[in-house]
């Protein structure tokens, strides 16, 4: 399992300050989640597409992820157009497709894709550590920020441990089947992961105490907001005002 972030070559989005990006992402999410008119959503989706092109993600990764999160939306398309009452636009046997249903699902599809593409563009251009520091600058409580940091930091370690345990099971000829033995083995695997993590967390705590940890990490560098950051924030705000105007 590789949880390294997908990152392409550097571009404009990479250069922006993490705090500014966090604020922009929050603003865009809040506006787009509440949109309902198709034309406003189209503009939002177009804006997300511009961002995702700017993020320069590898095309294959992008396509796989877009298909993956659209699976659930496709599942909803199977039902909603037929079950939402409204004006009939199409009929197969006893099932009638309503204009309201199609409109509702079009809204969901556009909104969902606009939001997720924007999220991908953000994550592909911002290291998680920079986001953690941005959270601190935006006054997220220390404990929550450290919890976020620790969880992220140890996912890779624990997933290595998981791989080690699964290898050990395979060497002993474990084959997953639908039976109690399989479930018990997986449960013990979960238990062992938890026990190892618990012991690891005690060692981490002692190591931090030894190094005089007093509840906060020292800041090594102070970042400045550049002119580019300010311009980007203004552009995002203008685009959002435009979208809200179209929404009416």
């Amino acid at each position: 399992m590789d949880h390294e972030q997908i990152q392409g070559p550097e571009g404009l989005l990479h250069a922006l300050d993490a705090r500014i990006k966090l604020v922009c992402v929050a603003l865009i999410s809040a506006v787009v989640a509440l949109l309902s008119s198709v034309s406003a959503l189209m503009i939002a989706l177009f804006f997300s597409l511009v961002l995702i092109i700017g993020a320069r993600l590898p095309l294959r990764v992008l396509v796989v992820r877009i298909l993956a999160f659209n699976l659930f939306i496709a599942f909803l398309w199977l039902f909603l157009p037929w079950t939402l009452p409204g004006k009939e636009v199409y009929r197969i046997g006893i099932f009638s497709m309503s204009a309201e249903g199609v409109h509702f699902m079009t809204g969901i599809t556009l909104r969902s894709n606009a939001l997720v593409l924007m999220l991908m563009a953000w994550m592909a251009t911002t290291p998680i550590v920079a986001t953690t520091r941005a959270l601190k600058a935006l006054h997220v409580p220390d404990k929550l920020m450290y919890l976020f940091f620790f969880t992220y930091r140890y996912i890779q370690e624990i997933s290595n441990e998981y791989t080690r345990l699964v290898t050990a099971m395979r060497i002993r000829c474990f084959r997953p089947r639908t039976d109690l033995h399989t479930y018990r083995s997986y449960a013990y695997l979960v238990g062992m992961l938890l026990v190892n993590s618990f012991e690891r967390s005690l060692r981490i705590r002692y190591a931090m105490l030894c190094r005089g940890f007093q509840g906060h990490f020292p800041r090594l560098a102070s970042e400045n907001i550049s002119r580019l950051d300010v311009v980007s924030l203004i552009v995002v705000c203008l685009v959002l005002v435009g979208i809200i105007y179209v929404e009416g």
Binding site: Y154, I158, Y162
Partner: peptide
Amino acid sequence: SDSVPKVGVLSSAFFVASLIHVPIG
């Protein structure tokens, strides 16, 4: 704040455990 590492590391363990796929038929 002393228990932050414990909660954090256990949370990553649950994150990893939620990736385990269990066969059902």
